[in-house]
């Protein structure tokens, strides 16, 4: 075994150990949440292997707020936002990547500028817009400000730019119009990017809190995160068991989806270059 080989072996072992360490740190909060959620609250900070299991925390959490409504609202919300984002971003990115028109660069810079602005800064202005549209306290009002996503446009434009011109031209020679070229050449080639972007978008909006809280007033429009707030009333003390049960419950769909599609997600992230 040569010396360089030894060094690379050693560094590999170090990398593996590092990865394990990071993974362990990452999983700890989740593992704690599972522990606290399935045991009675006396055991939430007391780790005895023979602690009795109980579903009570989940039952308590579920009954503490109309979570069925909140699940439905969140589901509608993320689906609506993602659908609108995919359509809008695809069309905008295609225009920016492959067409030349007056003001294209200025428009693109404006889109990029939007990336620099935290959405929270615009809350008052957005609220005013929603009031003018008569949409306060509706699910579309939560989603509208996010639909024309600058990140999505930028990401897809970069991806479309990497598609070889030859493919585009070949499709046109075959008689395809601009929209057909988009749907048959660009979109299929960008599939990994779409999956990666979809994941980011869904998890962001699943977890978004401040704007939904401010723009909604009633049970029929509020998403899960706002419903979770019930457990935050620190005035009366905190029951970790119920909080962790509620958190697991509300993040379960995301966690499950990730576990099921793990391979695809990881691969698409690698290909899309967002890590």
């Amino acid at each position: 075994m040569s010396a360089t080989e030894k060094v690379s072996r050693g560094s590999e072992a170090l990398e593996i150990a590092g990865a394990w360490l990071l993974a362990l740190i990452w999983i700890l909060p989740l593992a704690y949440a599972v522990w606290a959620a399935i045991h009675p609250s006396e055991y939430s900070a007391h780790f005895a292997p023979d602690a009795p299991l109980t579903p009570q925390n989940f039952i308590k959490a579920w009954n503490a707020a109309p979570f069925a409504w909140y699940f439905l609202n969140t589901f509608i919300l993320v689906t609506m936002i993602l659908a609108a984002q995919l359509v809008l971003c695809t069309l905008a990115a295609y225009a920016f990547a492959r067409f030349s028109f007056a003001g294209r660069d200025v428009a693109f810079i404006l889109v990029l500028l939007q990336l620099m602005i935290m959405p929270d800064v615009l809350i008052v202005e957005n609220y005013r817009t929603m009031t003018a549209l008569g949409l306060v306290d509706t699910i579309p009002a939560i989603g509208l400000p996010y639909m024309a996503s600058a990140f999505g446009i930028f990401l897809l434009r970069q991806t479309f730019k990497t598609v070889p011109r030859e493919l585009d031209e070949a499709a046109r020679v075959e008689g395809a119009g601009p929209l057909q070229v988009l749907l048959k050449v660009y979109v299929p080639l960008a599939k990994p990017v779409y999956i990666a972007y979809g994941l980011v978008s869904v998890s962001y909006h699943w977890n978004n809190f401040l704007w939904p809280l401010i723009i909604t007033n009633s049970v029929s429009t509020r998403p899960l995160t706002v419903g979770l707030q019930i457990f935050a009333s620190a005035d009366q003390g905190i029951d970790w068991s119920v909080i962790t049960a509620a958190t697991l419950m509300t993040s379960a769909p995301l966690l499950l989806a990730f576990l099921l599609f793990q391979r695809q997600f990881v691969q698409s992230f690698m290909r899309a270059g967002i890590r």
């Binding site: 509608i76 689906t79 509706t138 579309p140 429009t221």
Partner: peptide
């Protein structure tokens, strides 16, 4: 989705 959302609103 848009329809459902509207109805809820």
């Amino acid at each position: 989705v848009a329809l459902v959302a509207l109805a809820t609103g």
